[in-house]
Amino acid sequence: MIDVSDSRPVPQDLLVVLRHPPHGTHWLREGLDVALVAAAFGQRVGLLFQGDGIYALLKGQQAGPLGQKGTHPQLAMLEMYDIDTLWVSARGLNERGLSADDLMLPVVPLEASAMVELLQRHPHTLIF
């Protein structure tokens, strides 16, 4: 288990940055798919939620009209793929009036300097 409580984020093999909110587009779903597949292939994957991507973590989401699948079951499934490193932009969280209590999974909020370091220290990064 990787200790993420440390103030210096521990890099994984792959960082997936999620910047798009759920439902409105397919970005979040397909970004999470890449994270899940990489993890199924044995890569250690970390996720960073930035901007409106933070809304992916909001509690109380449901399926959309016509049964459009939400991304919240995918997020709940991360644990089964051993993806347990979830970072979130602290500024993005504040700007949206959200706190960790509003989110469905435990996350590590990062200040801007830590986010820069996060990107610098990961060998591979994909942004969705």
Partner: peptide, 10 residues
Amino acid sequence: RFEAAPAMRP
């Protein structure tokens, strides 16, 4: 629980 069929690992 997850609305998806699992890969082998999960």
